[in-house]
Design a protein around this nucleic acid. Structure first.
Lengths: 197, 197, 197, 197
DNA sequence: CATGAATGAGGCTTCATTCAT
DNA sequence: GATGAATGAAGCCTCATTCAT
């Protein structure tokens, strides 16, 4: 009983939806406030009633999408018991989400890196939550002996996230289809078993 | 015998140098032609004598830097005999180059991904040459038995490049220092030996 | 018998108070209806229930403050008998009021002059009442022989008001402190006795 | 022979002229960059090639006009020998200039006071030069015994400038004609001889 | 080989104001 | 008596780009 949280005004919703739609097609810089407004069937001015900035709009939308993403990841992870199992699941789920939720992945893979500001924004926090989750699992794996003791957890995380993101790049940029299951399994195999015969 | 290659006119050189300098500090979108010109001690108009447009300037500069980069990589690779040894060297050399040549890495990691146009540009060719080099080595490794036969070469390449790029991200964006040798060795270890104990 | 004057509704009062407060800090143009409303803990819409527009709000507030101002001046003037005594008092009282009532002086010295509209507004009437009071006293002084017969009353008024206002400018704009008594006495001395030895 | 100072580009000149013209009719805030450009038969963008800001444009124009003003004042002052004679001339010349050069007086009397920024701008320097000139003459007058020893020079300056400015206000705002010679003489008489009979 | 004056399109943002509830 | 969602007009400014000289 948190009390009735008054729903967002229609204008706000329409603006966020419009922006989400546009982000699917173009990059942030190429989207103009005029387009956002027109697409939302709203006046440009209204954007600034609900968002400080065009950038603020990006962050808010990103936030909403990421929230969902992280929620799903967490739920799935309960299905695994071993640490490596969990990481497997994260790799799979991340790939799935990245590809399913093109908007999110575009923002994460392409836009966001450009702007110092982003990393100082609250939006970046979310990303780190995701990253911390991975780190935690790695440490558990090391503690439990599943992962070799001498492994640098930060570096392993870098390899995992790097592999995931790079694997999606082609899809995101060129729309090349990707066999998610196979890719996830392949990444896991390489990272956990190594490529030596 | 290409004949005497007439040297670039001073204006052209100054413009490229100026742009390179600016790219070290800011992102492409934030650099204005006015700044480029001022920084080069040249008039804005001159830029358009030598470059079709601002993007063309980016590609040309990128090209110049990448050429160097790839040259170095190739030279180093001669120092290794085994395929895995070569990949080790590539990982190390790439990290080194990325971090040493901030301009190049910034373009590669941040700018370039944003622009569809880039991938259709000649500039992207260069990147693929690098990627193909890696792929070739992987295939040699599989053929020679150094790398497990069931390995998907494309995926392995993705993991390698993903790991390298992600490892550099923090440095590039935040300026966090990175122990190159240790990082390179760690990545190699994870990918080639796996993280299982 | 104007009957019971129904008290102003709370919203109206809050809005005027809010606007007064804001005028203390910023100039009219820099104050937005949004700020006024927020500061008054009221919605923007309500402003337009009680005031025709933003300018109307200014005039109404100015009016209220000026009324007070003029009231005080009139009361004080009863304490003097000679015309020059009265003018002395006006100079002193005006300085006092200007400095005490920063809002009023800011409006009078800075805002109001900018707007043709103001001078066509009812608000300007008030100012002229003040000016007429001064003129009347000057004429009385000339009639009674206290002031040299050849003095142009309009011009003398200009000198008096000009001196007062300019003397306050520094304080109003920069917040430079001002010794009121000394300043008033000095102005009186200069104007009434001249500066020749 | 300071060398040929290259003349201002036509665009710059047209913009300043256009702005000067517009300032004659409206106040700063009501003048839009669009109007300035149209009136100058130039594109809006060009304004920002030559001026940092709309405000910068104001200052530059003010500067040009004030320079002239001060030049004239200085020349005239050489015609008087006594300090009071010089002040007489300043009063007369200032009135003349204010009324002749409506643009300057408008800026000085109306616009400029509104903006804190102005007083921190280089433009304000000029005004203080004028003010300092007056102060210097007053002090000379006191030293030479022309002006009563007990006179506060700052205050006297305030009275003089205040009288001049206030005397012009009506003309500037309403276009009421003003007999300059008579007004100047009247002000001088009041201030130097006092109004007592 | 290079200049420098000028353009034009459009971007983001602000704000007073209205109106249904 | 008051709210709050929404408007629309316009403002300032930026920038890549062109072209005559």
């Amino acid at each position: 009983m948190t009390g009735k949280e008054k729903p967002d005004p229609p204008g706000r919703i329409k603006i966020m939806a419009s922006f989400s739609r546009l982000m699917q097609e173009k990059d942030f810089h190429s989207i103009t406030t005029a387009q956002i407004a027109k697409n939302a069937d709203v006046t440009e001015g209204l954007i600034y009633k609900y968002f400080k900035d065009k950038k603020d709009l990006l962050y808010q939308v990103l936030n909403a999408h990421f929230q969902e993403f992280h929620e799903k990841i967490k739920i799935r992870m309960t299905q695994a018991t071993s640490s490596i199992g969990k990481l497997d699941l994260i790799i799979l789920a991340s790939l799935e989400e990245y590809l399913e939720n093109r908007l999110l992945s575009k923002i994460l893979l392409l836009e966001v890196r450009n702007s110092q500001a982003f990393f100082n924004s609250g939006a970046y926090e979310m990303v780190t939550v995701y990253a911390r989750t991975i780190l935690k699992i790695i440490r558990e794996g090391i503690a439990s002996g599943e992962i070799a003791a001498h492994t640098d957890p930060y570096l392993l995380r870098k390899v995992i996230i790097g592999a995931i993101e790079h694997a999606c790049l082609g899809e995101v940029i060129f729309g090349k289809p990707l066999d998610i299951k196979k890719t996830a399994a392949g990444i896991s195999d390489i990272i956990f078993n190594g490529v030596k015969p």
